[in-house]
Design a protein around this nucleic acid. Sequence first.
DNA 1: GTTACATTTAGATGAGTGTCTAAATATATG
DNA 2: CATATATTTAGACACTCATCTAAATGTAAC
Lengths: 95, 95
Amino acid sequence: MKQQEVFRALADPTRRAILKRLQRSAASAGEIGTLFDITGASLSHHFTVLKQADLVRTERRGRSIVYSLNTTVMEDLARLLLDLVPARSKSGGKS
Amino acid sequence: MKQQEVFRALADPTRRAILKRLQRSAASAGEIGTLFDITGASLSHHFTVLKQADLVRTERRGRSIVYSLNTTVMEDLARLLLDLVPARSKSGGKS
DNA sequence: GTTACATTTAGATGAGTGTCTAAATATATG
DNA sequence: CATATATTTAGACACTCATCTAAATGTAAC
């Protein structure tokens, strides 16, 4: 997991909202764009960051490009965070 | 949980390293400072961000100020992330 | 190929961030 | 109170980032 890229990607509220939308189902860029009051260019920038972090996958479908969530990375991240928490002597934390 | 502050705090690698150090045990600012090649002023800045996010607690002990991890916020965060992951129809995710 | 739609790229701008040096504050000790 | 140690605050600087407009690219349909 590209740790730094992932944390950076999650630091922006718009990107977190995008992920939340994708949680429901995959969606095209334009479809997601209707949810936010930003230009397509800005949206594209956010997708670039999310892709760099491997948080989303893309697939061209006709004219549109469909984005979907990469749940694996998010699970890794949650595990990593729980590892930051002591007093959980269940599974050993790797440094 | 101050979601935006928390994500922002975690976006910096030095701050994540600080949290990782605090996972082992509480420590004073100076003690933590020996681990990084930055000035005390920069370190203090990072502590401010971590405090704003409620990720650490402080306690004065003589001349030093001792920092310790606030595990509650980190657990909240991990739960929030797992909520971002679908295909986990165990507990309902609140929006 | 041209027109229409969907997304990305290029370049610019203003706000935010990490870092530094220097000065200030706080606590302990002589 | 003066000195030493520990941390914070103030101000500055370079860099990153989110956003925009305008232009370019890619895909489909005519």
